[in-house]
Design a protein around this nucleic acid. Structure first.
Lengths: 226, 226
DNA sequence: AAATGTTCGTAACCTATGTTACCAAAGGAG
DNA sequence: CTCCTTTGGTAACATAGGTTACGAACATTT
């Protein structure tokens, strides 16, 4: 089997396909592969998005342009990674960013119409597709949740209660160092230390090294509502 | 046509179905309607989620329970609203929250298996489903974006540049009052006023009432990178 | 017109938390 | 064991931005 087919087969979109399934699918589906030079535009912001792409080889950058014309790179797409999947079936039919090949690149394209047309013969494809989207939503939800806390203390409590729920006991070992914890919470380490100390003074928790103990669950949870 | 069918028909999931389509669909799909008393649990957190539900009548609260047993209401679901759609096809197959009927409630359930089985006859259903998920992702993306700015000034610039891009000219009228703007940016009005004044002092923008003028686009955009 | 309400801008104050610096304890390497 | 590196706590300082209060401009009612 050619390398690019291996890659497609390994993608989440074709999860569960046998080699035979894929060959059969490719023989009936209108798909195409395109190559791009370094610097060439793969898809332009505001261009209608009518297909899903999978990077077969090379590297693509997703860039967002500002009014002035300057841009930032939002995301790198490497071998096996997919793009366009969120937008093809949405109402907003245009790309959210410009895709530019950073190296000579080959891309596998699958028309939106083909996915719909072949729903019937290959229901697994659609199922995989839906699964990818669902997963993305769950990830984003978690992201929003953690961003929504407006104080450091709330993020700390969330973190601690998460661990508590895993372990099930009010006393437990933190599985990470302070430095890592601070990183996870997106705060400088000294700020974390200070806040933890304050919480200890206030009798909410106790700790010594990585041994933590929840002293007042109710007041801890109440912090979310402040 | 019975009222509950009207409601289902009006939901996003059945968008594009004619009355005949719906009747035909209901005659072959295994679906069911259940009624719940006030206070009854419609779906329990950590219960496997195997179907999509649509509220036909009544009111359901989605509640998240804390370790101590206390809970908060995350969301209200009224007539015509759907639940379970994000989770049924994801890997995490359990509900993210507990659903409790707040009034006597009737719910229309559609098995996940039925959606898949009837993909072929009713491709529109799956298409609608995918569209709903895609839309949700785009909304969440916007949410994450706005939450990701860590300073008020960044949020203000984002807001102003958004308007600028719509209008296309460096001078334009803001379509909202200060109060509304502050609300949209999630900040108290005085804080907004203060920051806008500072930005004017620094020569970034000028404004008088709702007439705004961008004086230094480059420096304005640079604020995102601070 | 007088009285009242609404929308802003401004200023004083306070708190959360980022920043920087320094010290102590613990663990490894020589 | 000594030296050095890493990790964590603490303290001093600076800043962003929330909170409250007040006054001016403008609109609305009587």
């Amino acid at each position: 089997m050619e390398k690019w087919k291996q890659l497609i087969l390994a993608s989440k979109l074709f999860q569960g396909f046998s080699e035979g399934d894929l060959e059969a699918f490719l023989s009936v589906a209108k798909t195409n592969r395109e190559t791009f030079q370094k610097g060439e535009v793969v898809a332009n912001e505001e261009m209608p998005c009518t297909h899903i792409g999978i990077v077969i080889s090379g590297l693509i950058d997703a860039q967002k342009t500002y009014p002035s014309g300057k841009y930032i790179t939002i995301k790198h797409l490497g071998e096996g990674e997919m793009f366009g999947e969120v937008v093809v079936f949405s109402n907003r039919k245009t790309y959210p960013a410009t895709l530019i090949a950073q190296t000579p690149t080959e891309v596998f394209f699958l028309q939106k119409e083909e996915i719909m047309r072949l729903q019937q013969e290959y229901p697994l494809l659609m199922l995989n597709f839906v699964q990818i989207l669902s997963q993305k939503i769950l990830t984003l939800n978690r992201r929003v949740k953690s961003l929504s806390y407006h104080t450091l203390r709330q993020r700390i409590v969330d973190f601690i209660l998460e661990v508590y729920q895993k372990k099930g006991t009010l006393m437990f070992q933190l599985p990470v160092s302070r430095r890592q914890m601070a990183e996870l919470l997106g705060t400088p380490r000294p700020s974390l230390s200070r806040e933890l100390s304050k919480m200890r003074e206030e009798g909410l928790i106790d700790f010594e090294k990585n041994s933590f103990k929840i002293l007042d669950l109710d007041r801890l949870e109440a912090i979310f509502f402040e």
